[in-house]
Amino acid sequence: MSQVLLIEPDKPLAKTYQAALRKAGHKVKLASTSQGAINKADAQTPEVIVLELQLVGHSGIEFLYEFRSYPEWQDVPVLIHTGVPYIELKDSWDLLSDHLGVSDYTYKPDTSLDKLINSVRQLTRSK
């Protein structure tokens, strides 16, 4: 059973993802903002982070800059699960993967819950 930190600002979506990931055997903590996520990670280091980039105030990318600035969180795998299509992230992908340690990207409308669960599973195995 792995500890997942799900950073998702939309309540109905967050509840749905949480239920699906729990059913797949993960422990899931929810955060809706960048600061909330840092606080949750501080209380217990997650094994995987699932991150929406569109947050209120500080964006998901700003969260990643702060999160990666702590040495103890350098190796935590991050899956970007977002409503932002890849074409709009293409230019930033090198920064996200090489500099900010993003392991994978999934586009919400195209990603079934099964696929999301598989992506999380692969990241917990790869650790």
Partner: peptide, 17 residues
């Protein structure tokens, strides 16, 4: 896109729970 994604994911979850 947001409510449609909610419907999409909730329907998928309901099909298995």
């Amino acid at each position: 896109k947001l409510p449609f994604m909610q419907i999409q994911k909730q329907a998928e979850l309901l099909s298995r729970v």
